[in-house]
């Protein structure tokens, strides 16, 4: 089912949580709402679910206005960060809850409920836990049970609020791959909220980057990573080096070197370069930035070098392990830096 979000605004006192948000979500899509804490992503998700009411704007499910519908009538599955499982019920009863509370006319028979619950528990690969209580499960298991419970009511939309936020890194990685596979199987329109850019890029079909109640950019993971629409998106999606400079006839000077900024107007500018998009050399070329390696950190597969650049702060450079050992770089060496890809923003524009 498609979802249209039209001109949604929400304030909490003087704080603007959402400022005129417009967004179309296609049927069967897996969408990530990505942003730092306080950007309004959870509020937006709760408004879509009907757990929160917007001050202005409309939510349309499949073209039909659902703004005033109660959450219990919206047919949404909601998964909470802290699972919100019913502690006094077994796993089986938790999953069966949505079926048991239906009015008599539409309530499935006991055998039907049993079949359905076991089918869902098999889908989340936890059928063997049916008789346990939530307190006896691990975090990852609880979240999968919460997901099975949400799917039991056959929702038209699945909403997940930081679903992996309370889990440790390894379980989180496993679960997000599993969620992606699950989505490919059931093709339910799904929206999940996260502050982890890696998670958003890995799992989602499309990513919505939010900041201070605004949408900064909407696009596929490739689009938002490779062509960020704003400095915020650039910074939020991965590490970045900033050069404050002035563009003059297509070049921005940094110390004795300069960075190519073709097409940029002559004005003060901020230049963004990702650490892994910088080449190191011992030979001075015409434009390269001069620097001295002051620190080398080994982070598993990549090596991060901190280089003091003349006329600038320290710059981070990331090399693969092979490139690092080929170069044989040492602390204290003088090096020359050439950025391969840069993004130039002139603040006025």
């Amino acid at each position: 089912m498609s979802i249209d979000i039209r001109n949604i605004s929400k304030r909490f006192g003087n704080f603007v949580a959402l400022d005129n948000i417009n967004l179309d979500i296609a049927s069967g899509e897996l969408l990530a709402l990505l942003g730092p804490s306080g950007c309004g992503k959870t509020t937006l998700l709760r408004i879509i679910a009907g757990l929160e009411t917007a001050d202005a704007g409309q939510i349309l499910f499949h073209g039909e206005d659902t703004t005033d519908k109660h959450v219990s009538e919206r047919q949404v599955g909601f998964v909470f960060q802290h699972y919100a499982l019913f502690r006094h019920m077994t796993v089986f009863e938790n999953v069966a809850f949505g079926l048991r509370v239906r009015p008599k006319q539409t309530r499935p028979s006991e055998s039907e409920i049993k079949r359905k619950v076991h089918e869902l528990l098999e889908l989340v690969q936890l059928d063997w836990l049916a008789d346990r209580y939530p307190a006896q499960l691990s975090g990852g298991q609880r979240q999968r049970i919460a997901l099975a419970r949400a799917l039991a009511v056959e929702p038209k939309v699945l909403l997940l609020d930081e679903p992996f936020g309370a889990l440790d890194t390894k379980v989180r990685k496993e679960l997000r791959r599993w969620l992606r596979r699950l989505h490919d199987e059931v093709h339910l329109t799904s929206i999940f909220v996260t502050h982890d850019q890696e998670e958003a890029l890995e799992v989602a079909d499309r990513v919505v980057v939010l900041n201070k109640g605004h949408i900064e950019q909407v696009g596929t993971p490739e689009q938002v990573y490779d062509t960020p629409a704003s400095p915020f998106v650039y910074q939020f999606l991965g590490d970045v080096n900033l050069f404050h400079s002035r563009v003059h006839q297509g070049w921005a000077e940094v110390g004795k070197g300069r960075i190519a900024a073709p097409g940029a107007p002559d004005a003060p500018a901020i230049i963004y370069v990702r650490p892994h998009e910088i080449d190191l050399s011992r030979v001075a070329s015409g434009d390269a930035l001069h620097g001295e390696i002051n620190h080398i950190r080994i982070l598993g597969a990549t090596i991060r070098l901190e280089v003091d650049v003349e006329g600038h702060d320290a710059v981070e450079v990331e090399l693969s392990r092979e490139r690092y050992s080929e170069g044989g770089w040492q602390v204290g060496e003088t090096v020359f830096l050439t950025p391969r890809t840069v993004q130039v923003y002139t603040p006025q524009a």
Binding site: H70, V71, G77, H82, F86, F97
Partner: peptide
């Protein structure tokens, strides 16, 4: 009692009375 429990029950289609009887009262 976490608000989320009631919200979860509500999103699963439970009425106010069902939430009270099945979620809050047992707790």
């Amino acid at each position: 009692i976490e608000q989320e429990l009631e919200e979860a029950a509500s999103s699963l289609g439970a009425t106010r009375w069902q939430i009270f009887r099945l979620v809050i009262l047992p707790t």
